[in-house]
Design a protein around this nucleic acid. Sequence first.
DNA 1: GACGGGTATTGGAACGTTCCAACAGGAAGG
DNA 2: CCTTCCTGTTGGAACGTTCCAATACCCGTC
Lengths: 335, 335
Amino acid sequence: MPDPRPPTIKDVAERAGVSKSLVSLVMRGSAKVSEQRRAAVVAAAAELGYRPNAVARSLVRQRSHVVGLMLSDIHNPYFAEVASGVESAAALGGYRALFNSGSRRPTAEREAMETLLELRVDGLVLAGPVLATRDIAAAARSVPLVLVARASRSAGFDSVTNDDRRGGAIAVEHLVALGHERIAHISAGAAAGARSRRTGYERAMARAGLSSRIRVVSGSFTEEGGYEGMRRLLAGGERPTAVFVANDLAAIGALQAADDAGVSVPADVSVVGYDNTALAALGRIDLTTIDQPGAELGAMAVELLFERIEGRRDDRHIVVTPSLVVRSTTGPPPS
Amino acid sequence: MPDPRPPTIKDVAERAGVSKSLVSLVMRGSAKVSEQRRAAVVAAAAELGYRPNAVARSLVRQRSHVVGLMLSDIHNPYFAEVASGVESAAALGGYRALFNSGSRRPTAEREAMETLLELRVDGLVLAGPVLATRDIAAAARSVPLVLVARASRSAGFDSVTNDDRRGGAIAVEHLVALGHERIAHISAGAAAGARSRRTGYERAMARAGLSSRIRVVSGSFTEEGGYEGMRRLLAGGERPTAVFVANDLAAIGALQAADDAGVSVPADVSVVGYDNTALAALGRIDLTTIDQPGAELGAMAVELLFERIEGRRDDRHIVVTPSLVVRSTTGPPPS
DNA sequence: GACGGGTATTGGAACGTTCCAACAGGAAGG
DNA sequence: CCTTCCTGTTGGAACGTTCCAATACCCGTC
């Protein structure tokens, strides 16, 4: 018993004894159709279990009413927040959101993005992509595109970010105010935002007269990256009294490494994360971090997308100012 | 300067001086096309920046090569694990995965599911839906469908779950073995799997001769639910010495409530979660929990989907056995 | 009873692909 | 030199909608 094809508008039309055009009118809620016919169509559709085919519709309308969202890393709770912001803002505008994920690998990200493009989404949001700017710019040539959580001076698309450089500086300033001097940084290499956070760290260190204390080890935006970075910091040379970690996920890995090494936080070493994810707020973690409101950034991204869909051509780059959230992983340096 | 329409197969054909059929052949990598023409087509496509239109393709092929995944709650890291399992298994089979989320609300879930159905995905995976079984069965009538992390005896679709009842029992048995008697449960009401975990708890209590000690407070699969539940348990009546919480997220909320109330874990009260998410493994949390391998369940779901797409008609219900992961939130009861 | 004017309804083209049957054109065989 | 066969190529139908221009219908007016 091969599954019969799903009913089409034509089947509904036949059963209701009207033309397919009329059915189309009814399905789209047109006002100019007689009550009697409407009822007949609605009944026929219900009996057949008719569901409009969005594929056919977007083909003819040249509009899918879908915004695509490529998440760089689905395991990072920060992106989950971005996603929910995107989803609700899209719904508000009568659009639906569809996600994807590229496991923090450029090739996987490009494929994920390509999938969305081939589906002809009306707009594309890229959250924290590690993709080459060149590829992003190319994609932006064929669809309205907004970057979230990654800055760009590039033309052809919009972006919504927080001021990562400022955020990095805020972290350092907080630690300096507490009396720290040996402040190290676990960076996330070339990942989105990582470079600026590092620059913010370095400049703030210089401003505080601590240029000679600058110490950066490379990690990544993952727990493992943070763990490894902290392990190296604790192992070799002069131990830092404070560490600014590239994001919350990595900071949690760093906390773990400190715990494992019997180094207590914040008594022996202070730790600052970035993103203020739900993770950081957990009582047991209670991580001092830099707040960057994910859901809001996601929602703003969709707003920008809508404007572009409406025809705006100039580039808009929104930069929100991050803020410090002090919790219990930072304190004065050991005396 | 209105954005020109993206180039179509016809544009490529014209530029390469061949028919659109030939272009189609080349794009799909057919062997039977001369090297000379192929080169011309490839060049023309590159020059125009041609990207095949997946919408048109799925319309005519009646196949989208996309599997849809509806996540009940995008903030629950457990579902992120399911999602990555789904995504990689889909990729292995030459399919792409697209996500959605219903915010643990039946209406939002139904809408999310409907979106996917209208897009005519080839298969649908629902992860932990709170949707009515009736709605799921209805959807299963029009597309191969697999339920993950929610059991069902219903016909017409497959499911992949762990044995929640057994899991609940394992948690109780562990606590009983440690010497606990006043073991309470924070349930998640009618959410997917919650009922069975509760039944498992109740039956295991009875088997241990602790029927009179059974105490259930209602919560949800969220931090807030767990926090609230624990608060109530600590406030009223005889305080339990151990609590089995419906999932990790809620267990973390419960830990928080214990911390806030100055109740120490596990000295005063032991806590067991469910899911063994990455959260539970964090050193600072180190939650004893019941393991249910999310990524694997997701991958299995896709396997089942593939079989159904290939034509299998009978229902398959895979139930994996959960296992105990002992960490530091459980210990003997206070003496 | 013819006419005008609005409103409800309809057929057919279009959207960008794939698929299939049909067709060139050259090589091989008689 | 004519068939036959194969290989590469092509036009056109189909997929399920929307949209537009055209038509049918009804009502009131003269």
